[in-house]
Amino acid sequence: MDKFILFGDSITQYGNEIVDGFALQPELQNAYIRRLDIVNRGFSGYNSEHARLLLPKILDAELNETRDNVKLMTIFFGTNDGLVGVNPIQPVELSRYKENIEYLVELALANNIKPIVIGPSLHDYKLGAEHFDDLKDTEAATCERYWHYSEGAKSICHKLDVPFIDLWEEFRRNGGWTIEQLLAHKKDSPVAEVSSLSSYLNDGIHFTPKAYKILHKAILKTIEQNYPEYLPENLSFKTAYWRDINPKDPSSIFKEEKQLYL
Rank of each mutant, 00 (worst) to 15 (best):
Y32A: 05
Q25P: 01
D20H: 09
L55C: 10
T12E: 03
N69P: 11
G15F: 00
L55F: 13
N64H: 06
L28T: 08
Y32E: 10
M73A: 14
T12A: 05
D20T: 03
V70L: 05
F76Q: 11
R41C: 14
V39T: 03
L63K: 03
I38T: 11
F7N: 12
D37I: 06
V19E: 14
A61R: 14
R67H: 14
D20Q: 15
R41H: 11
I75C: 11
E49F: 01
N16R: 13
L72H: 06
D20I: 01
G42F: 09
L54D: 12
I18Q: 05
Y46Q: 14
F77E: 08
Y46V: 02
V70N: 07
G8P: 04
L63E: 14
I38N: 12
G78A: 04
R34G: 02
E65P: 00
E49L: 11
R67N: 14
N16C: 05
D68A: 05
F22N: 04
G78W: 02
L63T: 10
G45P: 03
N69M: 10
D20A: 13
N40V: 13
P26L: 06
T12L: 04
D68M: 04
E27A: 15
G42L: 11
S10Y: 03
H50Q: 14
V39I: 15
D68L: 05
G42C: 07
G45C: 07
G42I: 10
N16V: 10
T66S: 12
L53Q: 13
S48M: 07
E27W: 01
L36E: 03
Q29C: 01
I38F: 05
L53M: 11
G78R: 06
I18C: 03
T74E: 10
L63W: 07
R67Y: 04
E62W: 03
R41V: 07
A51E: 08
E62D: 14
I11M: 12
Y32S: 07
R34S: 14
A23S: 15
G45E: 09
D9H: 13
P26E: 09
A31G: 01
R35F: 00
Q25N: 12
L63V: 05
P56D: 00
F22R: 14
G42W: 09
N47C: 07
L72T: 01
Y32F: 15
M73P: 06
I38P: 07
N40K: 01
E65H: 06
R35G: 00
E27R: 02
E17L: 08
L55I: 13
K57S: 12
L36G: 02
Q29Y: 01
S48F: 06
N47L: 06
L72I: 05
F7Q: 10
R41L: 11
D68S: 14
T12I: 13
L63N: 09
N16M: 09
N64R: 08
F43L: 04
N30G: 05
N69D: 15
E17P: 00
Y46I: 00
G15L: 00
K71S: 07
Q25M: 11
K57I: 12
R52P: 02
G21A: 05
F43M: 03
N64I: 09
H50I: 06
F77W: 06
I75F: 04
D9M: 03
A31Y: 10
